[in-house]
Design a protein around this nucleic acid. Structure first.
Ligand code: SF4
Ligand code: SF4
Lengths: 149, 149
DNA sequence: CACGAAGATGCATTTTAAGTGTATCTTTTA
DNA sequence: TAAAAGATACACTTAAAATGCATCTTCGTG
């Protein structure tokens, strides 16, 4: 049982942006900081932009910025939208082959558990993740406020 | 986000055994009923036996039987033991490369959510899954009580 | 005792989804 | 107009899960 890096990286991007609200951050910078494939971050950012979490501007001096207040970005919301699927088991997906799928109580139990999981994440917002901004910046080795002359 | 078939199949085996408490069930029978690889069921059953959930007897007339009362088999317990890992994200595993892992609040939130997930499954036992035994047997197309003459 | 039915064990192969790499296009500012 | 950035599209690689196959062990039956 695991969450895709895709989703975790999305949250890392949001955390990074939340830690640097005063400037635009480039995809390259994020990818290098976390040592991730640039392509992967690309895809993630594209989705974050199309979902309205992030604003991306092209061209020289461009980059990424949060498009919502951190307190208005729920972790549960992000996970729900970014994670490719929550088909915990066969029967969650249409055309399941499982003989039991019609009346299986396990199915219901797993569904309930999944809701509990997401509900727990709904209690947390991006703002909760970026308290102590100075420490975050330090961990990330973030560059000075004004990138380069 | 998904659970391995390994774990779900383990629960299917337990449900099957719970539905046929009066006789021994063979691995072949389970594999064919659910249309799963026999090897896979083998591995699963082996672990279920070594964990004490199931009793396996070899030789002619052998097969599988539950080794505990259904009400004493918690779904959460089974999932915890059978699922290969609960390393939701990078940092859950030792030697994580994530820069944030030292003080990341997301990590804590995910951990809490995972606990909520498992706690929900702890509310359910195998006995809850096999109420309405006749219907279960019907769905499984289970053979008559005495296998063959 | 020998045979066949069952589980136990081990290893090699296949499959699939996740992640990575590369190329090209578009936008924007210096 | 050139360089810096994101956007888009496609091909490739990787790793874990699942499957297949072969062999061994155990045990009941005739
Ligand atoms: S056993 Fe129950 S939970 Fe598992 S796949 Fe079949 S219907 Fe779904
Ligand atoms: S971002 Fe937080 S949760 Fe995700 S891997 Fe890094 S430390 Fe763990």
């Amino acid at each position: 049982m695991q969450i895709t890096q895709y989703t975790d990286y999305a949250l890392r991007v949001l955390i990074y942006l939340g830690a640097c609200p005063e400037r635009r951050v480039t995809i390259k910078e994020v990818a290098e900081t976390f040592d991730i494939s640039r392509s992967h971050v690309m895809k993630i950012v594209n989705q974050l932009v199309s979902l309205g979490f992030v604003e991306g501007t092209r061209g020289k001096g461009g980059g990424l910025r949060l498009n919502r207040a951190p307190a208005a970005i729920g972790v549960g919301e992000v996970v729900r939208l970014m994670e490719p699927g929550f088909d915990l088991v066969d029967c969650f997906r249409a055309e399941s082959g499982c003989l039991l799928s019609s009346g299986c109580r396990l199915k219901g139990a797993l569904h309930t558990a999944l809701q509990a999981f997401l509900a727990a994440l709904d209690e947390v917002t991006l703002a909760d993740l970026i308290v102590n901004q100075p420490r975050l910046r330090n961990m990330l080795g973030v560059i000075a406020l004004n990138p380069s002359p």
